[in-house]
């Protein structure tokens, strides 16, 4: 079977493929959102004074980073029903991706928080801030700036990793490409179209990430008026 430009372009603009692209986008965004929340909670637990909280968070991070995502997904979707826990495809995918991202993000957030100078904590406490205000007003915004680049990498990774959900029959980009490929056996055309859309999505994200980094980096990038020499009038 030879290459068919017709099929290629047909797939490229096919509403079925575009529907898959859209699913991949929201699946990634929602999974990341769940992962970020879980990651923040796990990071704060890991840094808490309570040995129990630290233990729970460490166990979670250890277990989820120690097992393949694909195994986690099939356990959630096909294994849990044995315990009477039946989750739909979408719920399973979001839970699997969210938990997995959270485990990785926990370490990223922890590193971000530890990168904030101890003097910032001193200043916040001296101003009468309690732990929550200190975190919200002073520490987390500064940690976030450090966290954005690795977070962006994870988002990029998640856009592609979301294709694993095709295994549990989530109707996302790869699965739609697979199904098109099976109709006319135009395998290369279908999968190349999928690949092109993944590249487009990660490229768009790259631009978005640049803007976010610029936004959070702005207070640090401004040129100062420090040590600017006075113009020497005698030399004019």
């Amino acid at each position: 079977m030879t290459w068919s430009w017709n099929s290629f372009f047909e797939y490229l603009v096919s509403p079925y493929i575009l529907a898959g692209v859209w699913t991949t986008v929201w699946l990634t965004c929602v999974s990341m959102a769940i992962g970020i929340v879980l990651g923040f909670v796990a990071a704060l637990m890991k840094m808490s004074n309570s040995a129990v909280l630290r233990g729970i968070a460490s166990f979670y991070v250890w277990l989820w980073r120690g097992t393949p995502l694909l195994v986690q997904l099939v356990i959630i979707y096909t294994g849990l029903p044995q315990f009477g826990i039946k989750l739909g495809v979408i719920e399973s995918a979001l839970l699997g991706f969210g938990l997995n991202e959270g485990a990785y993000f926990a370490e990223v957030v922890r590193a971000g928080i530890m990168s904030v100078d101890q003097g910032q904590t001193d200043a916040a406490r001296a101003l009468g801030m309690d732990y929550r205000r200190m975190m919200r007003i002073v520490i987390l915004p500064q940690a976030f700036r450090v966290v954005v680049p690795p977070l962006g990498n994870q988002f990029n990774g998640m856009l592609k990793t979301s294709s694993l959900a095709s295994v549990i029959s989530m109707e996302e980009l790869l699965r739609h490409a697979q199904q098109l490929a099976q109709i006319e056996f135009r395998v290369l055309e279908a999968y190349l179209v999928a690949a092109i859309y993944y590249v487009i999505l990660t490229s768009i994200w790259g631009q978005v990430q640049k803007r976010i980094e610029a936004y959070y980096g702005k207070p640090y990038m401004l040129s100062g008026n420090v040590a600017l020499p006075e113009p020497d009038l005698a030399l004019r």
């Binding site: 101003l127 002073v138 915004p141 500064q142 207070p219």
Partner: peptide, 29 residues
């Protein structure tokens, strides 16, 4: 945190909040 409000503290390394403007540094608390 409430009792610390009786005290103001100035540090050797200033410890201004680098992500906030001068005004926001002052009005945050």
């Amino acid at each position: 945190a409430r009792l610390r409000q009786n005290l103001g503290m100035v540090f050797q390394q200033f410890n201004l909040f680098p992500h906030l403007s001068v005004l926001d540094n002052i009005i945050a608390a």
